[in-house]
Design a protein around this nucleic acid. Structure first.
Lengths: 177, 177
DNA sequence: TATTCCATGTAATTCGTTACATGATTCT
DNA sequence: AGAATCATGTAACGAATTACATGGAATA
């Protein structure tokens, strides 16, 4: 594939959990080529800005396998929404509800988009990546539903706090556990 | 608080969704001070490496409120586990199961840690941040449980694929929806 | 032939971690 | 006095985005 095609592929298939910019892709392709992990499909040097497809080499395939077997590194968790809610004592009470409400809304529209993606995947039942696509999709669906569930629970806790104070909050917390 | 105390606070309370390094904290404190958003508690300049506590200024408080009201920016999603699973067609079949299994295990131990945190929060029912701590904790609990649920679902789908191929996978997928 | 889309690339900047260096304070 | 811990700070590096610059190919 060309760098451009790689970017398009990412945007069309795994955009829910991975993104890349051209500023990353093009320098990285050169690095991979100079390491002998990929090589240009066409022997002759491209003129100007003509498209430049690349193909993986045997050495590249080996390294890919190796990478797949290494335990994935945990991504650094940095959730700005939770950070704001945690410190929202210093904001107007309205702000807390608003933060929760917006989170719910975003999760709802994400859920919509994922349902569309589901239809697309199911319409190609013979695609070799079917299982893995569904597994990855499932992660998105569960995450979105969880987000909605959390927003509702958070709203209820804020409600309890407003009406009955800390006592009501703890009562409600114990009830669900 | 001093930079050191800030770091300790983060590590003890919100480490599940936020981290900071000293390399960020100390230069940032200087920037905040030069912007007039915080000021040193002690008037006299600290000698050597003595502790240096800071206090927020009225201007800082204003900016904090403003920041709390701005819609949080979505964090860029980059899930290396999903990326590996998505491309695991190129690895040994064992690898896929292993990736899922490890994810489940990590979620389980995270759940354990969160339950411990829950006890800690509930043991201080009069803390002013009680609601917000529980809300943020709830997010972690739900996320961990979702991760486990997903791992089980993924294992089942891989199983279906191994036993009955694409047909069995789709059948199982439809059953749960 | 003008426009649109495909396509590559670089520079500037930001964000963040890690490693390193060093001093102050407290406890044994 | 020595060790452990509290405490601040900088340098080097890496990862990633954004903005910018430019050219090639297809099509209206």
């Amino acid at each position: 594939m060309t760098g451009f095609e790689i970017r398009s592929f990412i945007d069309q298939s795994i955009r829910f959990f991975w993104r890349e910019s051209f500023g990353q892709i093009y320098p990285e392709l050169k690095r991979l080529a100079s390491d002998g992990l990929i090589k240009p499909v066409r022997a002759d040097a491209p003129s100007g800005r003509a498209s430049q497809p690349w193909r993986i080499t045997p050495a590249g395939r080996d390294l890919l396998k190796e990478w797949l077997e290494k335990p994935p590194q945990e991504q650094p968790v940095r959730d700005e929404t939770l950070l704001k809610i945690f410190f929202s004592r210093h904001a107007a009470p309205e702000t807390q509800h608003e933060l929760v409400r917006q989170t719910r809304e975003r999760a709802m529209s994400k859920l919509q988009a994922l349902h569309a993606a589901e239809q697309l995947i199911l319409s190609h039942p013979d695609h070799p990546d079917l299982v893995r696509s569904l597994i990855v999709l499932e992660r998105g669906l569960l995450a979105a539903r969880t987000q909605i569930e959390w927003a509702d629970s958070a709203a209820a806790l804020l409600e309890a706090q407003a009406n009955g104070g800390a006592g009501a909050v703890i009562k409600r917390w114990r009830r669900k556990s």
